[in-house]
Amino acid sequence: MVHHIVGAVFVLIGALFLFLGALGIVRMPDLYNRMQTGTKATTLGNVLTMLGLGIMHPAWLLKLTLIALFVLFTNPISSHALARAAHRVGVPMTPLTVKDTLKDKKPVVKEAEV
């Protein structure tokens, strides 16, 4: 029974990280910072939840590991693709931004409202 409680605590901490990720996308001032907090503070939440569920129910561990690995491999790719596309079409950065070396390198093409 103890492993049930330990696993459930992991799931709870994971859920808290997921919540923080969602809070981040509401609070952060521009797209890029939302991406920082939103799509990536949630990776640890994801992995912790899967780990907790695996502790609670070891028979599922293999599949839960696969889901966690899937998130770890695809998440950076989709957030990178989204960030690059957003920068190319000129989604504005917050006034807090201190530096943008990418902008100096390439002219920003303004296209549709994305």
Partner: peptide, 8 residues
């Protein structure tokens, strides 16, 4: 993957 940095 490490939050705080994002390859654009």
């Amino acid at each position: 993957l490490t939050p705080g940095t994002l390859t654009v």
